[in-house]
């Protein structure tokens, strides 16, 4: 059976991974290559690397950064930012990208979606849409011009699907970096309009938010950026909590299946007797 995916977004600004808050405040986290390596070791299902400065400055994707970041990435890597032509995509593929994420190009140049889908296959094209709440509905947000567009995220997703997109990444501007949970209504509006897989993003604080998302929408993947960065083994611990109610993949060597997890979705301390025993336990290194 197909598992629900847990994906991580890495927002890169001027070559550095940043924590983003409400699309306007950015705190530095570290080098993309290091973040990718750790997320991979902790058993993430997919990594989405978005370079938010490339499109702003109207420059091509930062190929050398992607090449370094992909070196230790043995899970699918989607790359976005600065893609305006097919030759950018071809070059990114040579740098270790597996999929591409189109945001601005998807808004203003749907031909690029079709062209990319035709050459590289639909499965390769992810269209990323930023949605913002306006009145009772939602609008697509243009993060470059910082304005709301007249089209709704659901309509845009449907247009993207028609043009050949293979997946939709829907991100909530209002929830970005707020730790207030996913915008279920926004994400549902998109899920209902398309038949291709949808990835929900924006606002996740812990495993509970991800479980909520999976239980209340038909998304294929839950995505988080910020909260994975700040604790050791954040991914496998989160997955161990989610696995109790949702079918996700948990195959890391350290899987926390037997651990107790507290109400804040953090590991509970093991009993002293167990810890004492562990002192003398030999843990073999995994050999491939």
């Amino acid at each position: 059976m197909l598992k629900k995916r847990i994906a991580a977004t890495l927002l890169v600004k001027d070559g550095i991974v940043v924590q983003s808050i409400g699309f306007n405040k950015y705190l530095p986290v570290g080098k993309p290559a290091i973040a990718v390596e750790y997320l991979n070791q902790w058993g993430i299902d997919e990594i989405i690397l978005l370079d938010i400065s490339a499109t702003c400055k109207q420059i091509s994707p930062d190929y050398s950064m992607i090449k370094k970041a992909s070196l230790k990435c043995y899970v699918p890597l989607s790359v976005g930012g600065g893609i305006t032509e097919v030759r950018h995509i071809r070059e990114l593929m040579h740098c270790g990208a597996d999929k591409l994420s189109l945001n601005q190009s998807a808004i203003f140049n749907t031909d690029l979606i079709s062209e990319a889908a035709h050459i590289f296959g639909n499965q390769c094209v992810v269209v990323s849409i930023d949605g913002v709440k306006v009145g009772n509905g939602y609008c697509v947000y243009d993060y470059i011009k910082k304005t709301n567009l007249k089209i709704s995220p659901a309509e845009m997703a449907s247009k993207a699907e028609e043009a050949g997109a293979g997946e939709i990444l829907i991100n909530s501007v209002d929830r970005d970096g707020m730790y207030s949970g996913y915008d279920i209504e926004l994400i549902n509006s998109v899920c209902e309009k398309v038949t291709i897989p949808v990835i929900g993003c924006g606002g996740a604080k812990n495993a509970k938010d991800m479980i909520d998302l999976f239980q209340n929408t038909s998304v294929s993947a839950a995505c988080a950026g910020n909260f994975f960065h700040f604790t050791e083994h954040s991914v496998n611990v989160t997955k161990a909590s989610i696995l109790k109610s949702i079918n996700v993949r948990l195959e890391t060597y350290a899987n926390y299946k037997e651990n107790n997890i507290n109400e804040d979705f953090r590991l509970s301390k093991k009993a002293d007797s167990v810890l004492e025993e562990m002192l003398f336990m030999r843990i073999e290194k995994e050999v491939i």
Partner: peptide, 10 residues
């Protein structure tokens, strides 16, 4: 069942 078949399957 959405097409494409994307993700981790056993």
């Amino acid at each position: 069942f959405a097409v494409p078949h994307v993700g981790w399957n056993n």
